[in-house]
């Protein structure tokens, strides 16, 4: 009797958990473990012989200027994009939680870029930077539009930032709006009666009350920016002269264009460690805030 019950349980366990576990093991766990192994080999994808070279790839990666340049770009881009996307998203949320007549329509408009995939957005903006800005320059005479957009390292950097802020701020706006709606109105009213200015109320009531949303939004933007790939691939292809190559794009190029799969995997592992650290810090900070709140 007992064994019949347990074999029935086993069947149920397989039925309920089996499919999810199977695809997870094949598609995520196995490649992850293999990656750890391949990062210690000279695998190039062509020859069948895969040689164990220990930490050779990691040593080479340490001296790989292209990789560290891409890291530098990614960090600089991430800092700027995280700050600007959050600022714009927050200001939009502040405006659109007032009783404006068109606020629903405006929310839709600001969110819209977000549903379009990064690859297509990059192509759209490539046209705007190259042709659209030139035309706007002719119309307005503003030198801003006549800069060599996508032509040099600085303008390309800002081009990627502009597209990211345009895409991401609507998403963060939605989260900020949800959070702002939860700030009790009587807190504001009590403060106004006590003579607090609107700036003081923003600093001393609104911002402390929405700190959980700030944490979520900061790290959402952090995670998007750090992993940026599609938009850069279609907007600048990492150029000019690799100046806008993100880490993700560097790994991709190393593996699938240079065919150095072993080295590419080592870079991918380093990338994973950095992303994992960022996420752990995020979870830790969020948890800590929940206790305080």
């Amino acid at each position: 009797m007992k064994s019949r019950v347990s074999s029935r349980e086993w069947l149920l366990q397989t039925l309920f958990v089996g499919p999810a576990l199977l695809v997870f093991v094949i598609i995520v766990a196995l490649p992850f473990v293999l990656g750890l192994y391949y990062s210690l080999t000279d695998w190039n994808g062509v020859s069948n012989q895969v040689l164990w070279i220990g930490l050779g790839n990691y040593r080479e990666l340490m001296g790989d200027e292209g990789f560290w340049d891409s890291f530098g770009f990614t960090v600089r881009f991430t800092i700027v994009a995280v700050v600007l996307t959050n600022l714009v998203g927050f200001v939009l949320a502040l405006i659109l939680t007032r009783y404006l007549k068109l606020r629903n329509l405006l929310r839709t408009i600001f969110f819209l870029p977000n549903v379009i995939g990064g690859l297509l957005l990059g192509f759209i903006w490539q046209f705007i930077f190259v042709k659209g800005f030139a035309a706007l320059g002719n119309w307005t005479g503003l030198s801003f539009f006549e800069l060599p957009w996508l032509g040099d390292a600085t303008t390309s950097f800002w081009a990627v930032v502009i597209v990211s802020v345009w895409t991401g701020s609507g998403y963060l706006m939605i989260i900020y709006i949800a959070s702002l709606m939860n700030v009790p109105a009587d807190l504001h009213e009590a403060a106004s009666i006590d003579g607090a200015s609107s700036w003081q109320r923003l600093r001393n009531i609104t911002i402390p009350m929405i700190m959980p949303a700030v944490t979520i939004c900061l790290f959402l933007a952090l995670s998007w920016s750090f992993k940026t790939f599609d938009v850069i691939l279609s907007l600048t292809r990492g150029g000019p002269y690799n100046s806008t190559q993100s880490v993700a794009l560097n790994i991709y190029t190393e593996a699938f264009q240079n065919n150095r799969l072993g080295l590419g995997t080592a870079k991918a592992i380093v990338f994973f460690i950095v992303v994992a650290l960022i996420t752990i810090i995020q979870v830790w900070l969020t948890k800590r805030q929940e206790v305080e709140a």
């Binding site: 094949i26 598609i27 995520v28 196995l30 490649p31 992850f32 293999l34 990656g35 391949y38 992993k227 790939f229 880490v247 993700a248 790994i251 991709y252 593996a255 799969l261 590419g264 995997t265 991918a268 592992i269 990338f271 994973f272 992303v275 994992a276 996420t279 752990i280």
Partner: peptide, 15 residues
């Protein structure tokens, strides 16, 4: 959920 796609895409091709 922490693992970025780019971190495992290379061995994924093998699998």
């Amino acid at each position: 959920m922490v693992i970025p796609f780019q971190s495992i895409m290379i061995p994924l091709m093998k699998v």
